[in-house]
Nucleic acid binder design. Structure first.
Lengths: 167, 167
DNA sequence: CATTACATGTTATAACATAACATAATTGTA
DNA sequence: TACAATTATGTTATGTTATAACATGTAATG
């Protein structure tokens, strides 16, 4: 194959992106962040992040554990959950609640208010930057409530899968 | 007690509401809906809905099962999950993903795009009507994606709990 | 009153997540 | 360097949430 296929999926939202560049950028980003914050980017943490970046789709904790095991790491459940919690705290991983799965954050600015678009058929997931789909969080009803975290997930069907559906 | 306490919680979002009226209204609403749609509002389904309306807060499936058991119904897991799925399909129950819990829908219009505001301390949950906090769903990035369901949950701390916090 | 669809019952197990405690590595500091 | 404190990982056990698969019962339709 001379060149990568430009786009297997015609949906704009799941559009092609340069994965090698993405991977390298993400690693650099997390390395710099950890140095700056004086955190330990241990082999385990790095591996978990790499697994998620490589797959570039949501993985269940036990899928991650399998991959850790195959890579020679311990693979008892708390290992994965602890590292995932840690990476989530620092914005490098998000949990996709609708899938009980975890995905590497694709937003270098570490938005705390990510929006996920999830196709229920192909299970592709896109993280949409929060300035694109924005909640009106200034509603008077919620002014005396301090939002610390948001879960915004839009589930449906992408145009590719819809076109393929018979019904 | 002569009159109900007006408001134990000062947060506007978790404001007082007339629970007896709410309960009656909700039952009438579901009865009418089931008749209109020619669905069976069986004793089991009615009971599950009543349990959720009475508590008026999110309950886990196994909490619901306990209450079903105490009321003389079968209490094996599929019982609850099946009825909850059914009630969710028809918009009378929502799942609060952040709590793995289920709550009766408080919106007579059965909005398919509910927003939940969840206090992480007192675990109170408010359903905010979707015209109050609205996502910009017309973003060009998601125009070729058909949204069927949304999960919008705002987790944080309500003013009552924040005032009570020491730190 | 039979047939079909719908609803519930039951057993077993899958999938997801954490508690509690042990050990090891790293960092700060006397 | 040696010590203490903190941070990170390892391990066992168990808790919690959810579904598969199949059996039985009940209601609606022709």
């Amino acid at each position: 194959m001379k060149k990568k296929k430009k786009n297997e999926n015609s949906s704009k939202i799941f559009k092609y992106h340069d994965h090698e560049a993405c991977f390298g950028d993400a690693i650099t980003l997390i390395e710099d962040y950890f140095i700056e914050k004086k955190l330990q980017l241990t082999p385990l943490r790095r591996k978990v992040f790499e697994i998620l970046i490589e797959d570039h789709k949501p993985l269940g904790a036990y899928e991650i554990l399998d991959k850790l095991g195959k890579a020679g790491f311990s693979s008892s459940p708390p290992i994965a959950y602890r590292v995932l919690d840690f990476l989530m705290e620092h914005g490098f991983v998000h949990k996709v609640q609708g899938l009980n799965a975890f995905i590497a954050c694709s937003n270098p600015e570490h938005s705390h208010f990510p929006t996920f678009v999830i196709c229920r058929k192909c299970e592709k997931v896109a993280e949409v930057s929060d300035d694109k789909t924005r909640l009106n969080l200034s509603s008077p009803e919620i002014t005396d409530f301090k939002i610390e975290k948001t879960t915004i997930e839009l589930t449906g069907i992408c145009s590719t899968c819809e076109n393929a559906e018979i019904r």
